[in-house]
Simulated scan of single mutants.
Amino acid sequence: MSRVAKAPITVPKGVSVEISGQSVEVKGPKGTMSWIVHPKVSVTQADGQVRTTPAKEGDQTAWAQAGTTRALLNNMIVGCGTGFVRKLTLVGVGYRAQAQGRVLNLALGYSHPINFALPEGIEAATPSPTEIQISGADKQQVGQVAAEIRRLRPPEPYKGKGVRYADEEVVRKEAKKK
């Protein structure tokens, strides 16, 4: 039995959740998201809380789906309320980033600059030339965009140069000995 599914989701002020059949729509200051719930799961809302339960009792796969649904709905509610942020740092001489509207300009040691177009619903900020902050309402999309930017120049193990997550630790290798 899923213990995650049993925990209720508290809906914060400023965020509204509308449930109609198997469709759930969340509206908040950061955006609007909708999702179709699995048929084995029922979603209810009462007293400012959203609960997920299996549609039929005794089905183990339904409990698993209810736990997954609860986690996804919680991410939607948090995302529409406060949003998600992923931070990247650039390590290397001459590595820099600059956000210009819907495009992120990157100089990552290649012979050409990289212009990374941001998808709809994602914003990028560069507090300093070596820091990038990716933010948005969809947790999965924020993580995916951060991973795509990191993939442009992943950190290498000898000098540690490249694009890395702010909380990432790169294991360094020892240089070749004579």
Rank of each mutant, 00 (worst) to 15 (best):
Ala175Thr: 09
Lys27Asp: 10
Ile19Cys: 01
Val15His: 01
Asp59Asn: 13
Glu120Val: 13
Thr52Tyr: 00
Gly21Pro: 11
Pro29Asp: 13
Asp167Arg: 06
Ala175Trp: 07
Pro127Gly: 02
Glu174Ser: 14
Glu25His: 04
Ile132Val: 15
Ser111Asn: 15
Ile134Gly: 00
Gly48Trp: 02
Val41Asp: 04
Thr130Asp: 15
Thr61Gln: 12
Leu106Lys: 05
Gly160Phe: 02
Arg164Asn: 11
Leu108Met: 04
His38Asp: 15
Ile19Phe: 05
Glu148Phe: 08
Lys178Trp: 11
Val85Met: 06
Glu25Asn: 10
Thr126Ile: 08
Arg172Gln: 07
Gln100Ala: 14
Ser20His: 04
Gly160Glu: 05
Ser34Met: 08
Asn115Ser: 13
Glu57Trp: 05
Glu131Lys: 15
Thr32Asn: 13
Gln45Val: 03
Leu72Ile: 10
Ser42Leu: 10
Pro157Leu: 00
Asp47Gly: 12
Gly92Trp: 00
Leu106Pro: 00
Pro113His: 06
Arg51Phe: 03
Ala7Lys: 09
Ala62Ile: 03
Ala125Pro: 13
Thr68Met: 06
Glu156Tyr: 09
Tyr165Ala: 02
Gly48Met: 09
Arg164Thr: 08
Ala46Phe: 09
Arg51Ser: 04
Met33Gln: 15
Gln49Leu: 04
Arg86Lys: 08
Ile9Phe: 05
Gly14Thr: 03
Ser16Gly: 08
Leu90Lys: 10
Ala166Ser: 14
Gly28Phe: 01
Pro157Cys: 01
Ser34His: 11
Gln133Pro: 07
Gly79Asp: 03
Ala117Arg: 10
Gly58Val: 09
Glu123Pro: 04
Lys178Phe: 15
Ala107Glu: 15
Arg102Val: 09
Asp47Gln: 14
Val41Cys: 12
Gly160Ile: 01
Gly136Asn: 01
Lys173Cys: 10
Gln60Ile: 11
Ser135Lys: 12
Thr32Trp: 05
Glu57Phe: 14
Arg96Gly: 06
Tyr110Cys: 05
Ile134Phe: 00
Leu73Asp: 00
Leu106Glu: 00
Ala147Asp: 14
Gly162Glu: 12
Phe84Val: 12
Ser128Asn: 03
